[in-house]
Design a binder for these strands. Structure first.
Length: 464
RNA sequence: GCUCCCAUGGUCUAGCGGUCUAGGACGCAGCCCUCUCAAGGCUGAAACACGGGUUCGAGUCCCGUUGGGAGCGCCA
């Protein structure tokens, strides 16, 4: 096999979404696995909808996911001359012809064909020359009407279309600009792409493109059509399924590596392995073992994968990762040592960076808010009396570390013949405002004596 | 409507003719651990869409049916 040269070719008409990211990822993994080349091409021929902002956003998504590309970006908008050359060539050789039908006429014919239960193909009105030569003309590729077109797909084997099912597609608009099917072919050939890896929504375009390759006397590349990613309703993933752009997942606190890991497992697997580092993926990825059935995007599993990657991060690195999310809720984590300890104590309890920030927030607030329901249950009169005594004892403690705290609690429980639950919960509510937190000794030790005592005081004053 | 693609538990998947009384993972339920919640450990419920072939033998091959998806633009 030739050294692979692949490309990801987004059109800058939206952000990098989950499906696009997966397509990009499989291209990237395939290239990196084989020591090949991964190129990026911006398909910006739709002047109406393409923006620089979307382009930047897509590149940002690529960088976040760690998919580096080789060489410079290719812009279709800068290659119109090239496309025109090939359109002219097809025209000169009689493989293409001018068509004067208007979009309105075409639309009407399509509607009628659909209504009559026929496939809405172009009827060939201008095949023998434009019927209205005075009008501006688009250019159509002359498709064979007989025979069939076959191509090989790495994921699915051989796929065949009857040429009679195809029609004469427009390769250049009446304003002279080229259209998608022509530009992809010209670009993929001139960029020397060896493997075209894309979503399987392109399978239907492929025979037309193969015909163009042949008409232009170009070698046909290998194809690999990836199964779609659907929403829970099994429909193509879209906005109404919630977050679809990868940056939204970044904002939700997912790790780049977890995202890559999860996405890679949609349509691909490697034995029973679930958790992969980026490096492992590039080593183990194999296009031939990509399946062909569509899959459903499942945030639950993504969250689990994320938690698995989170677990591998050191306490020190984790602070840096969580910090922006604390800042997001107006908390600062400038005391890095304190923050590291605080976040480490919660690390098993949060599946995303954002969750981690949220549940660690009580460590960083000047004053915590006490949940009325928690207070109702755990700050009753008897609890307050106990808290007051505990406060008294704590104030005399010289070392506020876990061991001495534990001894203190045990002594008190013994003396009062009281269960841990009844002592720990009121303290927990006082420290965190809720009934859920890391171990109570740990929480006290991290907060430290001063803050702990102040919070007990606040809890004793609390009335709902 | 037509064409193409797809079909293993709710979800991601293993399985490439016998080792499948179908394996793993997420999620779910229960139990253990336990100061709460997690994490962790154990256990459990849960699938080869259906019908025909081929074969000594089919989740695995072929054909239908059904169901789902995608495409059918002077969008990409």
């Amino acid at each position: 096999m030739k050294t692979p040269r692949v490309r990801f070719a987004p059109s800058p008409t939206g952000n990098l979404h989950i499906g696009g990211a997966r397509t990009a990822l499989f291209n990237w993994l395939f290239a990196r696995n084989a020591g090949g080349t991964f190129l990026l091409r911006i398909e910006d021929t739709d002047q109406e909808r393409s923006t620089k902002a979307f382009e930047q956003s897509i590149l940002e998504g690529m960088r976040w996911l760690g998919m580096d590309w080789d060489g410079e970006l290719t812009y279709q908008s800068e290659r119109t001359g090239l496309y025109k050359e090939y359109v002219q060539k097809l025209l000169d050789e009689g493989r293409a012809y001018r068509c004067s039908c208007t979009p309105e006429e075409l639309e009407a014919k399509r509607a009628q064909a659909m209504a009559e239960g026929r496939k809405p193909k172009y009827d060939g009105t201008c095949r023998n020359g434009p019927v209205h030569p005075d009008r501006p003309t688009a250019i159509r590729f002359r498709c064979p009407t007989e025979g069939s077109t076959t191509f090989h797909d790495i994921c699915r084997g051989t796929i065949t279309f009857e040429n009679a099912e195809l029609d004469d597609l427009i390769i250049a608009r009446s304003d002279g600009t080229p259209t998608y099917n022509l530009t992809v072919v010209v670009d993929d050939v001139t960029m020397e792409i060896t493997h075209v890896i894309r979503g399987d929504d392109h399978i239907n375009n492929t025979p037309r493109q193969v015909l163009l390759y042949q008409a232009l006397d170009f070698p046909v590349p290998e194809f690999a059509h990836l199964p779609m990613i659907h929403g829970p309703d099994k429909k193509k993933l879209s906005k109404r399924h919630g977050a679809v752009s990868v940056t939204e997942y970044q904002k939700m606190g997912f790790l780049s590596e977890a995202m890559v890991n999860y996405l890679s497992r949609l349509g691909w697997s490697c034995g029973d392995q679930e958790i992969f580092t980026r490096e492992e993926l590039t080593k183990k990825f194999d296009l031939a073992s990509v399946g062909s059935a569509p899959s459903i995007f499942d945030v639950e599993k993504l969250s689990w994968v994320n938690s698995q990657h989170l677990a591998k991060i050191s306490d020190e690195d984790l602070v840096g990762l969580v910090k922006p999310f604390l800042n997001e809720i107006d908390l600062d984590a400038n005391d890095t040592a304190y923050a590291a300890r605080a976040i480490a104590s919660e690390r098993e309890r949060g599946r995303t960076l954002k969750e981690l920030a949220d549940i660690s927030a009580f460590y960083f607030r000047e004053q915590i808010e006490i949940d009325p329901n928690a207070a109702k249950k755990w700050l009753k009169e008897s609890h307050r009396e106990m808290l007051a005594e505990l406060r008294q004892r704590l104030s005399q403690l010289t070392s506020f570390e876990e061991e001495p705290l534990k001894e203190l609690f045990e002594t008190m429980m013994q003396e009062r013949d009281c269960k841990m639950l009844k002592l720990a919960q009121p303290v927990r509510v006082a420290m965190t405002g809720t009934t859920v937190s890391p171990g109570i000794y740990e929480v006290l030790a991290i907060l430290g004596k001063e803050r702990s005592l102040a919070r007990i005081d606040a809890a004793l004053r609390f009335s709902s």
